[in-house]
Structure formats: C-alpha cells, structure tokens
C-alpha cells in the first residue's frame, strides 16, 4: 500500500465529513431530538436508584453518564441502521466503484470515518454537553483515560462499520436489504448495551452479549469513560475491539467478494 492510497483515503474521509457538514439545520434538529430522548432515558434509569445506591457496580452518576454517552454515539456509529452501501449495490452503482483502483469497501470505510468524525463532533458533543450541564457526570481524571476513550470510540466506529457493511452486502442476494438492516439494528440496540447497560442484564444474557461484537460498539468505550475498565483492563478492552474490527472487516470483505462474483456471473 503506497502513500497514494493513504492520500485517497484522506480525500474520501474529507468528503464524508463535508457531505454531512452541508446540512447544519438537519444537525440542529437531530441534536434536539437526541437531547430530548437523553433526558427521558436519564430519568427512567435514575428511578432505579430511588431504591438502591448501586446496580451492578453503577451508581446514579455513572448511569446518567452512560445514558448521555449512548446518545452521543447514536449517529456516530449509526445505531438505528445504515443502508448507503446496500442502495449502491441495488442501484448498480457498485459496478462503477469496482473499476476504481481502490477496493470499494475500503473507500466506503474511509468515507464513513470522515462522516463519523462529523457526527461525533456535531451530533455527539452537543447532547453530551447539555447532559453535563444538567446532571453530574463522571469524567475521566487522567488524560490517558481520555486518550484511551478516543481510541476506543474510533475502534467502535470501525467495528460498527464492519457489521453495517455485512448486513448491507446481503443486497447482492436479496431485494429485502431493509429487513436485514432492521434485524441488524435490533441486534445492535440490544446487545451493544445501548438500551440498558450490559451489566444490568441477567447473567446469561450478559454472557451472550459479550460473546458478540456488539458491546465493542457502545458498552466498551463507555466502560473506559466511566472508569469501569482501568489500568491493564483498558488495554484488554481495546484489544477486544481491535480483534472484532479485524474479524468483521475480513468477513465483510469475503462476503463482498462472493457478491461481486455473483454479480459478474449472473449480471446485475
């Protein structure tokens, strides 16, 4: 891989960022909705602490922090689903991507990283700031923890991209990619720890969740932020995310190759 390819990745990422930066009004509206939901979710989970001081190691502050971080990640990792790649496959535009010198998945990942940066800053930070103004949040004290958190969110984006790519690639075989997207989003919502912390799950469900890549998208970065993972655990957490990122990207790449072969053999 030469410098040219990296240069191309950079250009694609910039386009991904710019494409979403072009609609500030939509961003403001989205922040408003994410913030309103953040308040509702915070009050619901706070009601648990009227009866107990700690639940599965969370206190009230850690729980509220968890809620606002989750709201910040909604668009950053597209918790509710993504179908851009499936639409390119369905429309046949993907054929045009195939003749470019860069692998379509790599190009799409680069674009998505730029997009995610925009969403992390403009859709993620504002609700988090509102949450921090109204509630007492737990903040990392050590600059290294902040660094680990930023790396962890970056890995979460790649893991989520790998999974999103997989449920989009089914569009090579079926016209029902929307159904696949919904099912994928259901799995992400439940097992990532987005709707309730994985630690709140009954043991069997928590064990099941931890056997999947989904906690790497939401729960693990939050664990680092609120200090549930410390010291060596942080490195272990990042390693888990890295492994899932690689595994999912490899699966996506293999599936994509099968899909392309089918496209070439049978026609679009």
């Amino acid at each position: 891989m030469g410098l040219d390819t990296l240069r191309l990745d950079w250009e694609l990422a910039r386009r991904g960022y710019a494409r979403y930066a072009a609609y500030p009004a939509a961003t403001i509206a989205g922040v408003f909705v994410n913030t309103v939901f953040g308040f509702m979710r915070a009050f619901i989970l706070l009601a648990l602490f009227e009866q107990r001081d700690h639940i599965a190691g969370y206190d009230a502050s850690a729980t509220v922090t968890y809620v606002w971080l989750g709201q910040a990640l909604i668009m950053t990792i597209y918790i509710f689903g993504w179908q851009d790649l499936a639409l390119r496959i369905r429309s046949g535009d993907i054929a045009g991507d195939l003749i470019r010198p860069v692998h379509p998945l790599r190009a799409s990942l680069a674009f998505d990283l730029g997009r995610a940066l925009y969403h992390a800053i403009y859709r993620g930070l504002p609700p988090l700031l509102v949450g921090a103004l109204v509630f007492r949040l737990v903040l990392p004290a050590d600059p290294l923890e902040w660094l680990a958190f930023v790396i962890s969110v970056g890995l979460a984006i790649v893991v989520s991209y790998g999974f999103r790519a997989i449920y989009n690639i089914v569009a090579f075989w079926t016209t029902d990619h929307r159904g696949a997207m919904f099912l994928g989003a259901v799995a992400v919502n439940l097992f990532s720890g987005f709707i309730v912390p994985v630690a709140f799950f009954p043991d069997w469900l928590a064990a099941l969740a931890h056997a999947t890549p989904f906690p790497s998208m939401v729960q693990l970065p939050i664990d680092i932020f609120i200090g549930r993972a410390t010291g060596g655990e942080v490195l272990g957490t990042l390693a888990v995310q890295l492994v899932w990122a690689v595994v999912l990207l490899v699966i996506a790449e293999r599936l994509f190759a099968f899909g392309v072969r089918r496209l070439v053999v049978q026609g679009g």
Partner: peptide, 19 residues
C-alpha cells in the same frame, strides 16, 4: 422486523425490573 424493533423497548423494561 417491525415486531422485533418494537419488542426492544419492552426488553429494556424487563431488564430494568430484573434489577
């Protein structure tokens, strides 16, 4: 899919009450 998406909200309630 619509059934499952809707079911998620109820799963959250069940998980809360398991605590």
């Amino acid at each position: 899919a619509a059934f499952l998406v809707s079911f998620l909200d109820f799963v959250a309630i069940l998980v809360i009450f398991s605590n």
